[in-house]
Design a protein around this nucleic acid. Sequence first.
DNA 1: TGGTTCATGTAACTCGTTACATGATTTT
DNA 2: AAAATCATGTAACGAGTTACATGAACCA
Lengths: 184, 184
Amino acid sequence: MSLPHAILTALLEKPSSGLELTRRFDKSIGYFWSATHQQIYRELGKLEGEGLIRALPSEQPARGQRKSYEVLPAGRAELARWTAVAQDPKPLRDTLLLRLRASAVVGTAGLEADLRRHLELHRRQLAEYQQIERRDFPPERDTPQDRLRHLVLRAGIDLETFWTQWLSHALAEFPEPSDDGRTG
Amino acid sequence: MSLPHAILTALLEKPSSGLELTRRFDKSIGYFWSATHQQIYRELGKLEGEGLIRALPSEQPARGQRKSYEVLPAGRAELARWTAVAQDPKPLRDTLLLRLRASAVVGTAGLEADLRRHLELHRRQLAEYQQIERRDFPPERDTPQDRLRHLVLRAGIDLETFWTQWLSHALAEFPEPSDDGRTG
DNA sequence: TGGTTCATGTAACTCGTTACATGATTTT
DNA sequence: AAAATCATGTAACGAGTTACATGAACCA
């Protein structure tokens, strides 16, 4: 029950068409909530049917024609309601950790290469977030909105930092392929 | 496509019935892959149909009778294959971060209390993991299996540490309700 | 006018969740 | 014997994924 609220948030920040939303979900929104264009179009239809958003009247709606949406007062109210409702954190579900646990039983053959690949991916993501932080949150800007959005980005930075550190540590458990583990 | 492999891993560590698996998914396995008993029974049926596991012959199978499973060679091979296959990390999808971003638009009313609640939950989870670490991974034990399983637990500990720190930092952005933000 | 990209969608499927059902065992 | 609990399931639903379809705009 979070995708509609992610869309409402995105549309409040800026009214958009389906494809524009899709692009924003590939960028900033997607850093904490990902969605494909199929999900987004389906959900836009639902939200419009529920009277929480509406298509901007200036654009003509037809297949292949871009159609922009804006949030109606009922939509803003629903988002405010949902934001304040208590929700339990979802339990972790991570494939890489599962594979590591499995490798304790069936052997680590082939796993090390993918750990290295993940480390590289997380390093790149971390660098991207840090670049965004330098660009969008210079020390002098300090509105409450900025501070809240900066907090969200900080979570992303700290999580990527965790993964790079943990993966580096994990890889240290694997012997070097070239010398068969006789170091030390 | 990970639940069957989580079950294969659990059954290789120890042959179990559906309910025993459910209990183990509530404990150690569930720290990185959660599942309900409905999912587990459904998947046990599939895995048995595919010839990857079998019911232990000693027990009679009937509704309401406990039925234990063990992994067949084909199941072990499938788990080893899956463990070695490259997989991309899944993008983050976190409701709390989404709510924080939404609150930058619709206001933070009601959110602070739930942040405090999450902080308390993560602190408890962290304490539980640390207790398990002290109990199951004393410094003198050092088999390769132990080191891999310890790595997985370490990921859990470090993630909970991240959340407690990040939530503490986030709460510092909220004014104290009793003094209306006039501090400093 | 034929191909590529843009933009909006549909359909089918898998996985996870919630609610409920049923038989067996244990307890009172 | 009734109630509670243990243990194994079924059914319906909802969210997310993958593959495909269709119209419009642009480009050669």
